[in-house]
Design a protein around this nucleic acid. Sequence first.
RNA 1: CGGGGCGUAGCGCAGUUUGGUUAGCGCGCAGCGUUCGGGACGCUGAGGUCGGUGGUUCAAGUCCACUCGCCCCGACCA
Length: 574
Amino acid sequence: MRQSQLFGRTLRQAPAEAENESYRLILRAALARQVAAGIYSYLPLGWRVMQKIGAVIRDEMDKIGGQEINMPVIVPAELWKESGRWYAIDETLWRIQDRNDREFVLAMTHEEVVTDLTRRDVRSYRQLPYMLYQIQTKVRDEPRPRGGLIRMREFVMKDAYSFHPDSEDLDRYYPSVYQAYVNIYQRVGVGAIPVQADPGMIGGTGSHEFLLPSDIGEAVIVRCQQCGYAANQEIATAMQQPPSVDVAAAPPPELVETPNIKSIEALEEFFNLPPDAFLKTIVYSVEGKLVAAIVRGDQEINEVKLANALHVPGVRLANDQELANLHIATGFVSPVGLANLEVLVDDAVPGRSYIAGANRKDYHLKNVLPGRDFPLDHTVAIALVTAGDPCIRCGNPLVTGHGLELGHTFKLGTKYSAAMHADFLGPDGRESPIFMGCYGIGLDRLLSAVVDANHDDRGIVWPASIAPYQIHLVGLNLDRPEVAIAADRLYDDLRRQNVEVLYDDRQESPGVKFADADLIGLPLRVTVSQRTLKQNSIELTPRRTRENSLVPADLAVETISKHSALTSHALSPA
RNA sequence: CGGGGCGUAGCGCAGUUUGGUUAGCGCGCAGCGUUCGGGACGCUGAGGUCGGUGGUUCAAGUCCACUCGCCCCGACCA
């Protein structure tokens, strides 16, 4: 491609609204342009990267038996009503009507459509297992798009769905997808960490997220640097502390007047004790009922875990009215004598005594012993794991960091097949629902992540596997005919060898050309100029090292071809 | 949806507090000339009606009301 013809100008300054560095580079290098909040166009360079990422993903999906299909963006509402998600999902599900007022959704994922395809086609266990995938547009009316290509309202996703006769077969297949994902991230040049995750609204029996450690990430990763344990903070667990008091010898509770001492901080000051000496009781509203959640004073409640423990989609804090209705003394709540609502106790609570609320304004109780002074019927891990907590596996202190979610795999089980009657006949002649898995990767976000993980202060440093072109041929002094002829000839020779080359044939100063080459970030820069011509050679400059070397002109094509042979997924000749 | 910020030329910004002649600057863009290995220089020039609507006023980029859009934090997040 001749750069003089290439659509999309590089920008010296990024638009002011672009805050994170990878997004700034995406705009500056002319990969994409914003159309509306969370909605983007790709320019030629960016779209080539997307296609290359797609090629890597296709290769890995095909290797594990995937068959590529394509499903529509517009889907009849009936399918979503069958699965129940029409009712379960809020405004994020984009709903439209046709001219006859028939309802449709703009699909945010394709479990319904692929399950419908399956139930229409599959009758017998002999047709199982199989895996279908597509690389296709997804639409979600996100409450807050952000970060350029990080969270979009319209985006490109590889979504894959596998179908199995039983959960054992799904369990056997799942690791191959996991491995394919690890391969994909490695091949495109990002170090994604697989972590256990919450299945969320997709549902199912187990899931992993693939997170790239990055400040622009929205998830929090909890990791152990000793043993390698890693989990999303939403579901991370920590090792419990050993009991610190002699339970049998613990003294009875004692009422203490604590005028207007409501918060843990105020209690710390009042009693001059560390925060873990107290019990924290938070009242939640859960599907119309109130539930009390108890954690140690130094901990926070993990609402995802709480919701999972209660088998509900979500929880919210009780409001003042709800608390008032129950005659709860805000700031002095405790599980002691709290008979009129369900109480969940974090599993780190038992084993020692605490100062807790007295359920009476301006009073607390000393020497409250879990199990003796309040029941421990419902003890479950609901505390938020934070940095410094002991690793669940090895006990060493955990660390936390931000992570960008690059992919998510789920064991769905029969959630969709049962709801939508996707059944098959087994060898014994009995009908049962198909077991499903589903597996997603957002391509736009992956592109952002690659830029985030592969750039320097001059611009992008593309991994060869997904660079829009392999070679940036930069011609200087092109106003001199002998240089222009040599550069043109090299360009033609390289194209004849099917080398992907972007040829900067513009009439620009050397500084402009070098700066653009660094910004766009193709793996190898090849400079042809009066100076190199004089030495009967060309100059090679790998983008990553930026170290120049001269190669004899007659070896140029061979050397460069060898250099770019790394790419096994060349797009159409440049 | 709650909180905060911002809309003036393609991009980056000044001007708005204290209304007052033809709305400025840098980069970019066009033409000519000189340059040509790290975002060159000179001259000439094009380009905005100040997000939109309504209002106040002799007079509005500037004041008021409404409204649209974009960004950030939070809630949410398949």
